[in-house]
Structure formats: structure tokens, C-alpha cells
């Protein structure tokens, strides 16, 4: 057992003066193990949703406060929390879970403006920011502020009201936390046709480019027959200003993957460092790649994994 362990991590003539874990066969096994583990994890989260998921600690009130903090640093007036906008945001989140999509516009054509109208918020200006899988409120605001279109929404002087919903649910078979932030300025008189609207649109999916979509004029909307009829759960309508009180998953898939990946990378890095030193120290001649070069590539990956946070914005 001890000999096997030594051969795995240390130079010896039994392993041809190269730790067994760095042999081609062992590296192949490690790659296969990582892939199999990830596939198994994905299957498990789909078969047993709620056990593994994303444990977020985001508060809607905190998102509103941090948004206003950003506005105040730019000399803009704070946004007032509006219960109608909060309900519209909760309804949008519920709709994304119900229809299993992650976008401003639903696959069935439902636009963000539908939720404003449906809840009875007659707007002059309206906007929407989306986020998912973030661990805390500060990270959500930070990601939005780093995206020009989302930042434009947060710092727009067109808006004077805000509603935020933080909702847990299962999207694409995976436990996730959605954050929907809706901005608005109501019309003085009740009107069903918006004059102007802006929405921050993600940089990736969708047929239109960011620039095309960022200031797109929405189609005149009425909560009428032209719109899909969908009733959101009553619980959504009552959670004004707070988080959706669904139970959190026992373990975060993100944290589990991050920990195991970092652990494996660091283990291989340690073996590479010792191997490189021993090769240099003993002047070993062998057909092999350069340990310190492999070490630097893995160190980059470890550094990026540590520096990167979770979450996506749209």
C-alpha cells in the first residue's frame, strides 16, 4: 500500500523515475474521472432536484439598497420600491421557471413589458435586468455594473421606481436562484402604449446584437387577446419585497465542483513541483514534457477558478 502510494507521487526506479500519477495512463484516467463525475453530477441534479443546487444568500431589499447606493454615487436620486414592480418581477421569475427559459423574451414571444401591463403598472419608461446563480447580492450588482447595458438601466434617470424578486426554483433540471430587477416610471395618465422603453439584454444568446436590443422599442402592448394568458402562482403575488421562501439545497453543485476541481489541480501541481525539482536536482534524463510548464498552465487554471465567481446576467 505504502509502496503503491510512493510510486503514485514520488520518483523511484519502479515508476521509471516519474510519479505514476504523471504517467500517460494515469492522466487519461484522471481526465475520464473528471468527465464521468461531472456527467453523474448533472444526472443526479436532474433526477434528485433539491438535494444539490445553488445555495444563494441574496436579499431583494439588499439588491434595491445596493442599486440605490450605485445611483447615489453618481448623484442620481434613489429609486423607490414599488410593490407592483416587485410583483411583476416575481411573476417574470415564476414564468421563466414555469416555461423553463432564461431570457428577456420568452420562447412563446412574451416580452418583459407583458408583466408590467399584466400587473397594472402603466409605464412611461421601463427596464429589466436579470441574474442567476449568484451567491450574494453584492456579486449580482457588481456583475450588472460591469455590463454597460445593465449599468445603463441601474443609472438611468428615466426611472424612479424599482421592484426586485429573488426566486429559487428548478431551471433546466437544476436548482437555481433567479434575480429579476424591474425599473419603471409611471405615466401621469393611464395609458396602455409605452412611449419609450429600454431593456438590458444579454451579450450572448438571441438573434439581435446588444446595440440593437438595448434601446429597442417594444411593441404596443395591452393585456389582451394578443398576449398569452398565464396565471402566476398566488405565492408569487404575496412575496412583495422579499425572497421566495423555498428550502435551500443541501449542497451547492457549484461549490462542490469548484472544491473538487481545485483539489485535483493542486494535487497534480504539487506532484509536478516535486517532480520538476527532483529532475533538476538529480539531473535525470528522460523523455518527458517540462514539469514547470505544466505546473504554470495548471496554476493559471487554479488562479482563474479562484478569481471567478458564479452567476450569469442577462
Amino acid at each position: 500500500m505504502l509502496i503503491h502510494f510512493r510510486n503514485l507521487f514520488w520518483h523511484h526506479h519502479h515508476n521509471n523515475h516519474k510519479p505514476k500519477i504523471l504517467h500517460l495512463s494515469s492522466l487519461t484516467v484522471l481526465v475520464i474521472l473528471v468527465v464521468v463525475f461531472q456527467v453523474a453530477l448533472t444526472l443526479f441534479t436532474r433526477l434528485k432536484p433539491g438535494v444539490l443546487g445553488f445555495a444563494a444568500h441574496i436579499s431583494a431589499d439588499e439588491v434595491v439598497a445596493l442599486t440605490n447606493q450605485q445611483r447615489q454615487t453618481q448623484g442620481l436620486p434613489p429609486l423607490q420600491s414599488n410593490s407592483l414592480l416587485t410583483q411583476a418581477a416575481a411573476a417574470k421569475a415564476a414564468y421563466m421557471f414555469a416555461k423553463n427559459f432564461w431570457a428577456h423574451n420568452a420562447p412563446d414571444g412574451t416580452t418583459p413589458w407583458f408583466f408590467f401591463n399584466q400587473i397594472g403598472y402603466n409605464y412611461r419608461y421601463a427596464g429589466e435586468n436579470l441574474a442567476r446563480d449568484f451567491g450574494d447580492s453584492g456579486s449580482v450588482i457588481g456583475a450588472w455594473m460591469n455590463s454597460s447595458t445593465h449599468r445603463d438601466n441601474i443609472l438611468s434617470d428615466h426611472y424612479n421606481e424599482i421592484g426586485v424578486a429573488v426566486v429559487n426554483g428548478i431551471l433546466g433540471g437544476q436548482e437555481t436562484t433567479l434575480v429579476v430587477q424591474m425599473f419603471g416610471q409611471r405615466t401621469a395618465a393611464v395609458a396602455s402604449v409605452p412611449q419609450t422603453a429600454a431593456v438590458a439584454v444579454a451579450e450572448t444568446k438571441g438573434s439581435k446584437t446588444q446595440a440593437e436590443m438595448a434601446f429597442s422599442q417594444p411593441q404596443p402592448q395591452k393585456a389582451s387577446l394578443s398576449q398569452p394568458v398565464w396565471q402566476w402562482p398566488e405565492t408569487m403575488l404575496t412575496q412583495v419585497g422579499g425572497e421566495y421562501s423555498e428550502k435551500f439545497p443541501l449542497l451547492s453543485v457549484f461549490t462542490l465542483t469548484k472544491s473538487l476541481n481545485l483539489g485535483l489541480a493542486i494535487l497534480v501541481m504539487i506532484v509536478l513541483a516535486i517532480d520538476g525539482w527532483l529532475v533538476w536536482h538529480r539531473q535525470t534524463v528522460r523523455i518527458s514534457g517540462k514539469s514547470f510548464v505544466h505546473l504554470s498552465f495548471l496554476a493559471l487554471v487554479v488562479l482563474l477558478i479562484i478569481l471567478s465567481g458564479s452567476g450569469q446576467i442577462m
Binding site: L27, V34, T257, K258, I287
Partner: peptide
């Protein structure tokens, strides 16, 4: 110093690094 074993080693180290990096990124 080119040898097929050396090339395979670079391919496998890259595969390991990319798999770890990719699986983390896809979970974010």
C-alpha cells in the same frame, strides 16, 4: 526533443486542465 510521448503528455495535461476549467465554468 520531440517525441510522440511528449506530445501525448501535453495533450493529456491540456485535456485535464481544460476539463477542470470547463466543468467549473459551465457550473457558474
Amino acid at each position: 526533443e520531440w517525441h510522440i510521448k511528449v506530445l501525448l503528455e501535453y495533450i493529456l495535461i491540456a485535456a485535464l486542465a481544460v476539463t477542470l476549467w470547463l466543468s467549473f465554468t459551465l457550473r457558474t
